[in-house]
C-alpha cells in the first residue's frame, strides 16, 4: 500500500518537475531580453538536476547523485559565465 503510494508519488513528482522544466524552456523561448533567457536557463538546469535526483530514488542507484552534483556545478558556472558575458561582452578578461 505505502509502496504503491511511493511509486505513484514518484511519478507525480516527475511530472511536476517536467512541467517546471517546461516553464523554464518557455521562458527561454519567450524571454523578451537576454537576461530573461539566462534566468530561464538557470531554472531549467536546477529543475533538471532535481529530476535526476528523483530518477535516482526511483531506480535506487547512487550513480544519479553524482550526475546531479555535476549538473548543479555546471549550471552555476554557466549562469555566471552568461551573466558576465552580458555585463562585459566577454567572459574572461
Amino acid at each position: 500500500m505505502s509502496q504503491l503510494m511511493l511509486t505513484y508519488s514518484l511519478l507525480v513528482a516527475q511530472v511536476l518537475l517536467g512541467l517546471a522544466i517546461g516553464c523554464g524552456a518557455l521562458r527561454i523561448f519567450l524571454g523578451p531580453r537576454a537576461q530573461d533567457r539566462v534566468l530561464g536557463f538557470d531554472t531549467l538546469s536546477v529543475n533538471a538536476m532535481l529530476l535526476l535526483l528523483t530518477v535516482g530514488i526511483r531506480t535506487g542507484e547512487a550513480l544519479y547523485f553524482e550526475a546531479a552534483l555535476a549538473m548543479a556545478l555546471f549550471g552555476f558556472v554557466g549562469t555566471v559565465a552568461l551573466a558576465k558575458f552580458l555585463l562585459r561582452g566577454e567572459v574572461i578578461e
Binding site: A13, Q14, L16, L19, A20, C23, G24, L50, T54
Partner: peptide, 11 residues
C-alpha cells in the same frame, strides 16, 4: 516537486 513547480510558474 510542488514548491519547485510554483517557483517556475512564477518565472
Amino acid at each position: 516537486a510542488a514548491v519547485t513547480l510554483i517557483g517556475s510558474l512564477g518565472l
